[in-house]
Design a binder for these strands. Structure first.
Lengths: 233, 233
DNA sequence: CGGTGCGTTGACATTTCTCAACTGTTGTGG
DNA sequence: CCACAACAGTTGAGAAATGTCAACGCACCG
């Protein structure tokens, strides 16, 4: 019988939330829970795409390796998110590599063959996938928009203003889901530039920053920056 | 009866190529051919998404307007391409604005209501859409990759190396689907920087460049640049 | 402890942008 | 058909942003 943990995780995913239990069980039959240590590689760019994944706990980064050895992070993912569906549905190989970034990282691996069989046999699943692919598309369009912002200050401000946050206005706390080094790479700047930006904004009392989170004191100022209304802060 | 031009265009689209004629006719019944002049706006960011479009001839750019009046081009599209399906399928409003860039630009406007009715009633269509959405996702991932390349030389080289081209090795001709001004924006640099790059590479006999196309004389050198192996050329 | 790697800071090099001037092309109205 | 305006494209000079290199403190882990 299918692992109840697998079923529970699958049923909480945006793709599958609306699916009948019977379909979930079919997909669950080809899935299993897996656990990775930080730094472990799930798959590499170019590998045949045998499965896609859902994150129960921890984090995963998707990246591409350039010929000169550096790596370019395409996406950073956390609990409740899925990845590599497109590779399973349409491509024969993974277009990027995936690495666990936390210890432990718990995933559900959904077997591609089983999934494709259910997918081909039942239209309800394909309709559900269309919705989630559209959302993914939108988030990538916003990523492109972010990356084309002129200067690094605008990119950082834009990023901060879209992260989920807690706290009252005037004291909004934004949790950083990754290290500052990785955040810098995500925003296409060097760690030094990021550090200096945070410093400068801190000195002006626009933000406070500690390891793992940023507190926004002057959100108006930040939004102005994200819209390119000032040179760089 | 459905306009035969509409039907012919629809049947040549990647999404619909594999669809039965009967389905195409249903979708075609809610579609019509339209013609735009260069600079005309098809829809604006935030408008309710009543239709998506397929390009028969001409060109379209999708862009977002920033608060300070500049516009950021998200995508440039040509004949055979479609856009705004995701807005129709999943979102209630267009996430970006669209403008015709050539004179004349001929489009097929596919009515959202009709399309959604067919989409919901027939699983073959949703399966077809999944495939094309996956391709769209992949192309956006590559766009993100391109934009995160360190320097402008690498971005331009990367762009040139992925454009469709004609001619024998050593004399590859790449047609530019947009003005150099727009290409510069696409690659997130200023027109001046683009001009200077082309000039420098021309002086070194790596390329030749005229209005509307670039001839690649030394592809190896360009690939090295795209991989960040030299400072900037 | 000692090592490893992140984050910070400073000095300096390089890239890229900005501003301004100039050219050539195109399209328009007289 | 011409004069002219509008605009893409080019070039130069100087300014600003960002990257590079090097040094250091600090936390975390074995």
């Amino acid at each position: 019988m299918t692992d109840p943990v697998v079923l529970e995780t699958l049923s909480s995913l945006p793709h599958f939330r609306l699916l009948e239990r019977e379909l979930l069980e079919q997909i669950g039959a080809g899935s299993r829970a897996r656990r990775f240590a930080s730094g472990e590689i799930l798959f590499r760019e170019g590998d045949p795409s045998r499965a896609f994944f859902a994150i129960r706990a921890g984090g995963v980064k998707l990246y591409r390796s350039t010929r000169d050895g550096r790596e370019q992070v395409v996406h950073t993912l956390g609990p409740g998110q899925t990845f590599a569906e497109a590779a399973v549905l349409n491509l024969r190989r993974y277009p990027a590599s995936a690495m666990a970034t936390e210890d432990p990282t718990e995933l559900i691996e959904v077997g591609g063959e089983t999934f494709l069989r259910v997918f081909r046999g039942d239209p309800r699943l394909s309709a559900a996938m269309v919705g989630s692919l559209c959302m993914r598309l939108l988030s990538l369009v916003e990523r492109v928009e972010e990356l084309t912002l002129v200067n690094s200050g605008a990119r950082l401000a834009h990023y901060l203003s879209r992260q989920p946050s807690t706290g009252p206005p005037g004291k909004v706390v934004v949790g950083l889901p990754m290290s500052k080094k990785d955040l810098a790479a995500h925003l296409s700047m060097t760690p030094e530039t990021l550090s200096r930006l945070l410093r400068r904004w801190h000195d002006r009392r626009w933000i406070e920053s500690d390891r793992g989170s940023v507190t926004i004191l002057d959100g108006t100022r930040l939004l102005a920056l994200a819209n390119g209304e000032e040179s760089s802060g």
